[in-house]
């Protein structure tokens, strides 16, 4: 995947000005301070935002994104949230076991870390060939981070992850790109 000459601004705030990036590795970790545009870059790759200039070239058929916020529907329980992106109930039950969360729980009952895991499960269940993960491990302890990293890697899909922590990049065997 290649990003060429990418420019993007929110009203008057320029986020990217003629950005060029190459994603050569199966797993890439985009590192940068807050406000540098990591989330915006992931949204641009996902096609949720349109660049003002430049191109994002890739041949992925389906892209899944885990947002920086959990964005779960508060009026549905955990399982129903997951069933929105995947019709296969067995797949949903399987991933619920893997993330160690009871599917009947209401979203309002989830702690920050639990909601993060459900949000990750949703991104994994979507069945994409490119996975964009925006700070996927915030609110998780090291043990759970490791467990979730293994779960992500077991899917064998291309990864682009954003964050601030080199340990996360290491857990995901990712090449680090600074922006």
């Amino acid at each position: 995947m290649r990003i060429r000459n990418l420019s993007f601004k929110y009203e008057d705030k320029i986020v990217f000005d003629h950005l060029d990036l190459n994603f050569n590795s199966d797993s890439t970790y985009i590192m940068g301070a807050s406000g540098k545009g990591k989330s915006t870059l992931l949204k641009l790759i996902a096609g949720l935002l349109k660049p003002d200039n430049g191109t994002i070239e890739h041949d992925f058929k389906k892209i899944s994104i885990m947002f920086q916020e959990d964005r779960l529907l508060p009026w549905l329980n955990v399982k129903d949230n997951l069933l929105l992106v995947c019709d296969d109930i067995n797949e949903v039950d399987k991933i619920l076991k893997e993330i160690e969360i009871d599917g009947s729980l209401s979203v309002k009952q989830l702690s920050g870390g639990m909601a993060r895991r459900v949000s990750l499960a949703r991104a994994l269940l979507y069945g994409a060939d490119l996975l964009l993960l925006d700070e996927p491990f915030s609110g998780l302890d090291k043990k759970m981070m490791k467990k979730m990293s293994n779960l992500i890697l077991s899917k064998g899909v291309k990864l682009i992850v954003s964050g601030h922590d080199e340990l996360e990049a290491k857990l995901l065997n990712a090449e680090i790109i600074n922006i």
Partner: peptide, 9 residues
């Protein structure tokens, strides 16, 4: 944000 999630999925 929920609408954006719906669009993404």
């Amino acid at each position: 944000k929920l609408l954006e999630m719906a669009k993404a999925y």
